[in-house]
Design a protein around this nucleic acid. Structure first.
Length: 225
DNA sequence: GCGACAG
DNA sequence: ATCTTGTCGC
């Protein structure tokens, strides 16, 4: 039974990140793309009712067919603070993940991993607390910069932090469409994470894993009592 | 010091 | 994240 402690304040949240960060494993290649099971996770909010709904969807990486779905609904326990997103999303996401029967070999998060102010984004946090290989695919460049990659699907460019460190990759998943921002979470290489992101996005900008999780958590939120 | 800033 | 229908196009 994994869990994420809800910090009393932002200072405590940062301290937790700095501590857990030591457990991130970056020297594993991770599961090869195109086979095995991959889970996508996402959350949706209802601020009016103070609810958060999470979804975990397991896909067959070879066919991208849905193997299993799970959802969880909880109360929002932490405000949105850039850099502290994990404390807002993970408690409910973990509940959804734990109710799965299938055991995914990789979890794809909607957000960042290593590309983070303290090098410990959502995907790293999820990876460390579950022990599973994890990666992040974000829709916006956050505070990072990059040279515009080539226009073709598969073209990529380094995602760079203010201090010049390469923290991920801007990856074009569809010809002529805005790239997504891939970063490593836990127990996977950046090359492999990008290969997965590409394999999971045969038709749309966003990986199928995230698309399925997104629609499922919205539905779960609507149907929540 | 202020603002910007994954979802 | 969220406010939001129909509509244009492959």
């Amino acid at each position: 039974m994994t869990s994420v402690k809800t910090p009393a304040d932002e200072a405590e949240a940062r301290a937790i990140q700095d501590e857990l960060r030591k457990s991130v494993v970056l020297d594993e290649a991770g599961p090869p793309p195109g086979r095995g099971l991959v889970a996508g996770v996402d959350v949706a909010y209802d601020d009016e009712r103070d609810l958060v709904a999470a979804a975990a969807v397991v896909l067959d990486a070879a066919t991208l067919e849905v193997v299993e779905e799970a959802t969880a609904v909880g109360h929002v326990s932490f405000p949105y603070v850039p850099g502290l997103l994990a404390f807002r999303e993970l408690p409910t996401v973990l509940a959804a993940l734990e109710s799965l029967t299938a055991a995914p070999g990789l979890v794809v998060c909607d957000g960042y991993g290593l590309a983070h102010p303290r090098g410990f984004g959502l995907a790293c946090h999820l990876g460390v607390v579950t022990g599973l290989p994890s990666m992040g695919v974000a829709k916006n460049p956050f505070t990072f910069t990059y040279e515009e990659p080539g226009a073709r699907r598969g073209d990529a460019a380094a995602l760079v932090a203010a201090d010049g460190a390469v923290v991920g990759r801007a990856l074009r998943t569809q010809d002529g469409i805005k790239p997504v921002y891939v970063s490593v979470g836990h127990r996977i290489s950046l090359d492999n994470a990008c290969a997965h992101a590409l394999a999971l996005s045969p038709r749309f900008r966003i990986p199928e894993s995230t698309r399925h999780a997104d629609s499922l958590c919205r539905r779960a939120l609507r149907e929540a009592s």
